[in-house]
Computed example of a mutant assay.
Amino acid sequence: MWRELESRSEISFFTSWSWIGSWLRCLPTDVAPMFLRARLNGRLIGAGIVVGSVMWKARCIPMRVWRLNETGRPELDKLTIEYNGLVIDDTVKHLVEPLMVQYLLDQGSEWDELQFNALRRPVMPPKQRARSVFHALRTRLKRVRQPAYQVCLVDVREAGEHVRLIKQKPRYHIRRSYNTYQQSGPVTIEAAQSMEQALAWLERLKHYHRAYWAARRQEGAFQSDFFNDFHDQLIRANFNRGEIQILAVKAGDREIAYLYNFVWNGHIYNYQSGVNYAEMGGKLSPGMVAHTLAIDFNAAAGHHTYDLMAGDHHYKRALTLQTVQLDWWAARRPTLPVKAEDSVRRAARLATRIRPSLSKAS
């Protein structure tokens, strides 16, 4: 049902059945997802997965939270969905999406907070009713926006290569690094040609990814069994559909980096990377070289967008010339837990303002 609907909907890889199906298959049995669906004359025209959980606010207040395509459990949500949203038939999207959002708002007796995170576009109840709806439900709406960083591959094809489009300083670092790597042998980029090769290269990516975070005394994403099981499932289910791209970047026999990307209707999502900083780093830029080569590789393949996604990092700003906005959207009802959290936070802010005055007085 989902596959047939997504063929009629402009969606991202993260709301395709490739992602959602793998996610549902890997969820532990104590997670109870709800299937939100809209039908017209028996035909599915809208879908989403809603999961309820209890979230502890201010460390002591249990709050019932419903989320779209997430669980609310940090160890499971490390998957980090982006370009989230409902899957809706494009011909009726402008009518059906507001009604589906309104339906969830109308279930307010079941939740204290409703979250739609990392949305591709804002979602709202019908515009003419939005103000009266929120007033009647006494529901507060909070929205936060963050940029996602993209490269237009059409521009790259017209320019001939990606480095011609970026600023002088990163262009210099990339070319200097590339020329240095060539002393070890030809610098190459290659995509995994089989599922077995993709899984083997993913293990090399994990090795470098873990080394990077271990050097900072932090845990990387691949420390989680759930995270690893999910991506094993995802690759096995979807590599032969052409939706998984794992790239190896080398200088001769020396590994520079591995990149793990998703491919969806000409849109390349860079999801994870493993960069050999120990041998190829120092004053050089192995990660930026790898992404530049990946951008040129995908431009040559005829794709239209290379997406470094959300998260404000220097290398993303250096490599991209455009951003799109993702929305984090939350509705909160004035339930007892919400009021209690508001009171605790007001008291904490007041204590913060009073404390300097008491110190001066003493």
Rank of each mutant, 00 (worst) to 15 (best):
E82A: 00
Y315M: 10
M309K: 12
A300Q: 14
T91D: 13
L234D: 13
L326H: 14
W56Y: 10
L24N: 03
R353F: 01
G21V: 11
D229P: 05
L259A: 15
L202W: 08
G72N: 05
R73S: 02
V289S: 11
Y83D: 15
A294H: 06
I235E: 08
R129Y: 12
R210D: 12
R120K: 03
S177Q: 06
W213G: 12
G287Q: 15
C152S: 15
I189D: 06
H209Q: 03
A278R: 14
E161S: 15
R176W: 07
S224F: 00
F230R: 08
K57R: 11
F297H: 15
A192C: 09
W201R: 13
K78N: 07
T139H: 05
V144P: 02
F35Q: 09
D307M: 02
F239Q: 07
Y103F: 14
W201L: 04
R120A: 12
S16R: 07
L119Q: 08
P170F: 01
V123A: 01
V289H: 07
P33D: 09
M63C: 13
N117V: 12
K360W: 04
L27E: 02
S184R: 02
A32L: 10
R164I: 03
Q325M: 12
G287Y: 01
Y149S: 08
T323S: 14
E196R: 14
E196S: 09
I268C: 08
E10V: 04
F116W: 13
R216I: 06
N270C: 13
E219K: 15
D30Y: 15
A191D: 00
I174W: 04
A331R: 04
Y208N: 03
S362L: 10
K339Q: 15
V31G: 03
A47I: 08
A192D: 06
A32I: 08
Q150W: 02
V50K: 03
W328H: 15
L321N: 01
W111C: 02
L5F: 10
T292L: 00
W2G: 03
A331T: 09
A330S: 10
P74V: 04
S18N: 10
P126G: 11
F222G: 06
R333S: 10
I20Q: 01
H231E: 12
D296V: 02
S357R: 15
F35P: 00
Q272C: 10
I45G: 03
F239T: 13
D90W: 05
N41K: 13
P98V: 11
I20W: 02
E255W: 04
G42K: 11
A340P: 00
Q272E: 05
E190G: 01
Q245R: 07
